[in-house]
Computed example of a mutant assay.
Amino acid sequence: MNTVSTLTRPGASKKQAASVEFRNVTKNYGGVTAVDSVSFTIDAGQLVTLLGPSGCGKTTTLRMIAGLEMASAGQILIGGRDVTNLSAADRDVSMVFQSYALFPHMSVLENVAYGPSVQGASRKDAEAMAVEKLSLVGLSGLERRAPSELSGGQQQRVAVARALVLEPQVLLFDEPLSNLDAKLRRRVREDIRELQQSLNLTVAYVTHDQEEALAVSDRIIVMSNARIAQTGTPRELYEEPADLFVADFIGDANILAGTLTGVEGASADVKIDGLSVRLPHRGAKPGAVKLAVRPDAILLGEGASHGSAIAGRVKKASYLGTQIEYDVETATGDLFVVQYGRKEPIEPGTSVNVTFETHRGVAIIPGA
């Protein structure tokens, strides 16, 4: 794959980031439609994540950007140039694969320096660039090892460094952190994000990890059954899900039944059991509605319910250090609740009154 035409070394000019656009792109495998008439734009210099469950079409979409899969219909543009029918070698992109794909006969340093070397950098420059990126992903001191002498997580980080050492028009990541432990995953994703922003790179990033997507993305494209379910910023997707699938998939959500009793301007009054709340109506009409309520938007008060609240009983309490998680039984259904900062859990069996922080994490689901 032709990954870069201008190398990042002293005196090298920086290329302009390129946009990526899909126009009604479809990919068929025989009688199976893997991607169904998908349209979106990744603006130049943005990191956009394709997020969804296994089999939703996100990796096939990424591979069509790379030219590793050819579209059955529609048009793909990179930097305004139609690349729909161009091979991977004719697209200025670089990809980190879910598999490691390292050269077994080369050292770690040689693997990472290979791209700059074949693109014309001197051995000294190529190795200096490789050393810098290996430090970035936490592999300093392992430069002379063979891939077979590394753990799976270390091999994946070599693959990340090998892509980061080049500055393509578009950088693609397919589940790049899946083999790292939680602490390293956080560090490497932060490094990827920092590098993307400092170099103004256009990045398409595939993951099934919602926390990872929320942490690194300018925008997220949520896919379901080969189509786009919703596109938006992390905050928009979390706080204003377009449908039940997005509400349930992005983070944890309690899906509750309520009754919309009246609309005034952009707001609506909604009754859920004994609790009345005012929320943006999002196009909903008076009558039955569904609400997405995030676990950390639920407040628990000990004692019998009073006033505008939902009566509940704690079924289970789990202490997780930074937070306490509860299962709370109510007449409207069981609730999953997360509280931060509290040191002593509410004991199971305790009666509680349930209210919501409606300014965040509570939304009417349109059309549900």
Rank of each mutant, 00 (worst) to 15 (best):
A297K: 07
G287A: 04
D269R: 15
A266F: 06
G287W: 01
T259S: 14
R294G: 00
P286G: 10
A292C: 03
I298W: 08
I272H: 11
D269W: 03
L299S: 13
G287Q: 06
V263Q: 14
T261M: 06
I272T: 11
A266R: 14
H281L: 04
L256A: 12
D273P: 07
T261F: 01
D273M: 05
I298S: 12
A297G: 08
G274W: 08
R294M: 00
G274L: 05
R282T: 09
R278K: 15
K290D: 07
A266K: 11
A288P: 02
R282G: 10
S267Y: 11
R278M: 05
V289Q: 09
G287T: 05
V293I: 05
L291N: 10
S267Q: 15
L299E: 12
I272Y: 04
T259V: 09
G262A: 07
R278S: 15
E264F: 03
S267P: 00
A268V: 10
I298K: 11
T259M: 05
S276P: 01
T259D: 13
A266S: 14
S276T: 15
S276N: 12
L275G: 14
D273C: 05
V263G: 13
P280E: 09
K290V: 00
V270D: 13
L299D: 14
P295L: 03
G265Y: 04
A257Q: 13
R282N: 12
K271V: 15
V293N: 09
V293W: 03
A266N: 13
T261I: 02
A292Y: 04
L291S: 11
L275W: 07
G287L: 01
A268F: 04
S267D: 14
T259Q: 13
L299I: 10
G287S: 07
T261W: 01
L279G: 14
D296V: 00
T259L: 03
S276Y: 01
I272W: 06
S267K: 12
G258K: 02
L299F: 03
A297N: 05
D296C: 00
A292H: 00
V263N: 15
G258Q: 08
V270T: 09
S276W: 01
A292D: 06
E264A: 14
D296I: 00
K271S: 15
L256I: 13
P295M: 02
D296Y: 02
S267A: 12
L256V: 13
A288M: 02
A257V: 06
K290R: 14
D296G: 02
L256C: 03
G287I: 02
A292W: 01
G283Y: 03
T259E: 15
G274V: 07
G274Y: 08
S276C: 04
D296A: 09
K290A: 12
A292L: 03
P280R: 10
A292E: 03
R282A: 13
A257N: 14
V263P: 11
D296M: 01
T261S: 13
E264T: 15
A266T: 12
L275S: 14
D273F: 05
S276R: 13
H281Q: 10
P280I: 04
S276V: 11
G262L: 04
P286V: 08
A284H: 03
D273H: 09
A284M: 08
V289D: 02
I298F: 06
I272N: 10
V289H: 06
H281G: 12
